[in-house]
């Protein structure tokens, strides 16, 4: 990483991209886990009429925002290796898209 204060540093963008993809990944993991474990589904029911979806989405948003805040503080003003950042972000995004597709979740849960 280059020195802080670089006017065209990509660190803030890297933090935003990795955090958003991590939030999506958390959504996918929680969706599958909530479907597989009744106790977790009950814990994730923050608002009864909406059911576990209320907790799955809320926790994923919290993961996204916390990750964004932490990564932003660490990377802002710095230049990060964009190739590595992209690979990590695409990996989380791809897994998130797979995990939210019900047949994949069912396969993982042995349904």
């Amino acid at each position: 990483m280059k020195a802080a204060g670089n006017p065209v540093a990509n660190g803030a963008a890297g933090a935003a991209i990795v955090a958003a993809s991590l939030g999506c990944f958390a959504l996918g993991v929680l969706a599958v886990a909530g479907d597989g474990w009744k106790a977790l589904a009950t814990m994730l029911t923050f608002y009864r009429p909406t059911g576990p979806l209320s907790g799955v989405s809320t926790v994923a948003i919290v993961v996204w925002l916390v990750a964004w805040s932490v990564a932003h503080r660490a990377w802002r003003g710095k230049t990060v290796a964009w190739g590595k950042v992209s690979v990590v972000a695409f990996m989380f995004l791809g897994l998130a898209l797979l995990l939210t597709f019900p047949p994949v979740g069912d396969l993982l849960l042995g349904k």
Binding site: I17, A20, G23, C24, L27, A31, S57, I61, L93, L97
Partner: peptide, 15 residues
Amino acid sequence: WKEHVAWMAPILMTM
């Protein structure tokens, strides 16, 4: 599928 994947769209577009 819809109820979960939908949340990805505003997260990604906010970013």
